[in-house]
Design a protein around this nucleic acid. Sequence first.
RNA 1: GGCGAGGUAGCCAAGGUGGUCACGGCGACUGUCUGAAAAACAGUAGAUCUCAGUCCGACUCUGAGCCUCGCCA
Length: 293
Amino acid sequence: MTQKLLCIVGPTGTGKTSLAVDLSKQLPSVLISADSSQVYRGMDIVTGKDHPQDVILHGIDLVSPSDPLSVSLWYQKVKDLLTKSPLPIIVGGTGLYVKAITEGIPTMSIPPNPSLRAELEPLSVLDLQLHLAGLNSKKFSEMNNSDKHNKRRLVRAIEIASAITPNFPKNISHDTLIIGLKFNNQDRYLSNLKSRVKARVEGGAIEETKLLLSKYNADLLSHRAIGYRSIIAYLGGSLTRSAMLTSWLADEYAYSKRQMTWFSKIKNVKWYECEDPHLFEKLAELVTSWYHK
RNA sequence: GGCGAGGUAGCCAAGGUGGUCACGGCGACUGUCUGAAAAACAGUAGAUCUCAGUCCGACUCUGAGCCUCGCCA
């Protein structure tokens, strides 16, 4: 019997986690968050992190904000859970993390090479392109225009091309059910995001940011997560309070669109309207029958 | 009210002797994706305040109007 795997995906603010918590109570399961910002300890209010009362949510609070992070690291921390439960439930806003589990990322096993990265860091895009084309012209020609101009991706491709190719671990095959949550009404979605942002500010987002700033360098956090960069600008005086809210909201919305760009490409996602009053009953039935199939 | 400066995309903004004008940044939109993915990157769309005049031709020159800013009253 193949291992079952349930994924709940969708853009930010659609209630993925609370749905997953409810569903997890119906079946013997383990909950795993796939979210690249919620892995940081202490970044709770601004990232909208849930700490459910009566169930354990894995995959969050893995590292401190000053630690390096990658898909690989997250995957290492959660992969054992995948086989330890009859039903792992992945709750994910970060498409790449979900992909690491559903499809596998073979080259993930090739670790970063700090000295190579340091050496490549000052090179121009053109130099990096030439370098990669010399090492692996096939890989270079397969990259699309966007990636060919992306230094970070070029460096990584050179890193992979320079590495001794290991035997890529075979990905475990799953019987996967992917549920997607979204708002069908964009106006309602926007106003929902707006009240979430407001609630986070009222709930101590600014104090949380101040606390983080007292412990860590602002540069670490500033590029890192939506919300913090707006609050840091507000605390630094370059944004008014209302401009801070506006910029935060705009970032959340833009992010949700990038998430949808990713998720809408995944096939076999069963999409549901997240405000459907009968959502839970529908999904509970779907999941249960799929699980016992 | 007087004097001065100025009105170019949603915002900021460059320019030129009158010649398909229209740099760029932010934002917007669309997308990319095998170790930073709430990241990084790519592509697309969008403008000359109004009216009149000169001219083959006006965003550019002239006049009037409207509006904004500064100083003076």
